[in-house]
Design a protein around this nucleic acid. Structure first.
Length: 224
DNA sequence: AGCACA
């Protein structure tokens, strides 16, 4: 009774997306939100009657997609919980890169040739088997253990950092509300945004930003 | 609910 029984795919299929959000903004938000998990090859969203409220995010790695499916499941995105599965088929940008892209009109015909293909595949083992990949290549940042929050927790700031300096940096991102610093605890701060999506975008944009060279800021979601 | 590549 977990997610639907679709085999792993480097592309993920997202549904239950708020249909009111503009397509370009949607793509940008998805890009920002999911780039935590790995390199993104493409984001696809269509507003046709059949396809609105859905989107595809194409990762470079299957492991990134797997993490995204698990960790972003039910993430409150524009007020609706995302429902995420693996995509049912490879994205065109992937098959194009592989050189196996088949234009739409030919897809029907191509299915009848499946037996012929199977023989050809026996002689050629894929160098990168699908399922068991090594540990994901991401440095442990703590982000996977802390769920999304509209409030960000900033660490590793130079002690001379002021609230005003932080405001200059964070207020350029949509949904910015306020900076909170603590007199007794220099080097950290909290930054509040209107919602989880907005805070995620700012986190993505400013992660590692250096106010002074030895101090790349470390941004995570605040604990609830 | 809905799996495409405008």
């Amino acid at each position: 009774m977990l997610t639907a029984d679709v085999p792993p795919n480097q592309s993920i299929y997202i549904k239950n997306i708020n249909e009111k959000v503009n397509k370009e903004e949607l793509k940008r938000s998805l890009y920002c939100l999911f780039s935590h998990f790995g390199r993104i090859h493409d984001v696809v969203a269509l507003k046709t009657p059949k396809l609105r409220g859905q989107a595809w995010v194409v990762f470079t790695e299957v492991t990134a997609a797997s993490n995204a499916v698990r960790q972003m499941q039910n993430f409150p995105f524009y007020d609706k919980p995302m429902r995420i599965q693996y995509a049912k088929s490879k994205s065109d940008c992937v098959t194009k890169a592989e050189g196996t892209f088949v234009p739409k009109e030919k897809k029907i015909m191509q299915e009848e040739k499946v037996e012929r293909r199977q023989h050809a595949e026996e002689t050629q083992q894929p160098s990168m088997p699908n399922g068991a990949t090594a540990v994901n290549g991401r440095p442990p940042s703590g982000q996977d253990t802390v769920p999304p929050n509209n409030i960000l927790f900033i660490q590793n700031l130079p002690i001379e950092t002021t609230g005003m300096m932080l405001q200059m940096l964070f207020e350029q991102y949509p949904g910015f509300k306020e900076i909170r610093t603590i007199e007794a605890k220099p080097g950290i701060a909290f930054v509040e945004f209107g919602d989880d999506v907005q805070s995620s975008m700012a986190m993505q944009a400013l992660q590692g930003f250096k106010i002074t060279p030895p101090n790349p800021m470390v941004i995570s979601f605040a604990k609830k």
